[in-house]
């Protein structure tokens, strides 16, 4: 017996959902180097040597200095250092309208559970949550970027929630379906610009959201 949905508009939603799911969708990605072409066409600013203490470059200088520039020159560490964590928050996030956190995670390296590198807080919004990630000493990945994930407590599934660009703090919108389904482990990883969407396996820090 088919289930009955009272709301007329929901019938339309269901019909449209069915119609748009009848053909499979194959994900595709832009060809490699597109971001470089965009930065060239827009003439994005070249790297400025950071005056504050930056993490030592890993290995030799990257082949494409333009990419590193996006983190150190155009608003990554340098801006973060100028504004500080509190400055970043007030410079455009929703700090003043948030409710208290309902869950909190202490972020540590995988092999050093007592080395607290950061905190993640889950704050309810009108729709979904904001995950507020705070890393006071900062974290960046030279030549690549830092990505934020939620890993399911079953250990089998994960989902990316965003990029950790400013280095010290970041807000990420989280659908409540993800929290309900057990995606409660916050993970920050080093990623390369390689069009490979999966987790690199190189976790910087991780922690589980608990009440």
């Amino acid at each position: 017996m088919p289930e009955i949905y009272d709301n007329q508009s929901m019938d339309d939603v269901i019909e449209r959902f069915r119609r748009s799911s009848s053909t499979p969708v194959e994900w595709s990605a832009p060809s490699p180097g597109m971001w470089d072409r965009i930065t060239k066409e827009l003439a994005f600013s070249p790297p400025a040597a950071p005056e504050t203490s930056a993490p030592a470059p890993q290995g030799s200088a990257p082949a494409n200095p333009g990419r590193r520039a996006l983190f150190f020159g155009a608003g990554g560490l340098v801006v973060g250092a100028a504004l500080g964590v509190a400055g970043f928050r007030f410079a455009g996030s929703v700090a003043d309208v948030r409710d208290a956190a309902v869950k909190r995670a202490v972020l540590t390296p995988l092999d050093k559970a007592d080395e607290k590198l950061g905190i993640a807080e889950l704050r309810p919004e009108k729709v979904g949550y904001t995950l507020v990630v705070d890393v006071p000493k900062g974290v960046t990945h030279t030549g690549g970027y830092v990505q934020v994930w939620l890993i399911n407590v079953d250990g089998k599934r994960m989902i990316s929630v965003g990029i950790f660009t400013a280095g010290t703090a970041g807000d990420f919108f989280i659908d409540d379906a993800l929290i309900d389904a057990g995606y409660l482990i916050v993970d920050l990883s080093n990623e390369e610009f390689d069009d490979e969407p999966r987790h690199s396996g190189d976790t910087i820090m991780r922690g589980e959201l608990r009440a």
């Binding site: 994900w27 595709s28 990605a29 832009p30 597109m34 827009l42 996006l70 455009g92 965003g162 660009t165």
Partner: peptide, 20 residues
């Protein structure tokens, strides 16, 4: 407000959606 890293983050997050 003109933060170039924000465009890069938007690209990283949504260029596949746009391309598809």
């Amino acid at each position: 407000s003109g933060d170039e890293t924000a465009l890069h983050e938007a690209f990283t997050r949504w260029s596949r959606l746009v391309h598809t």
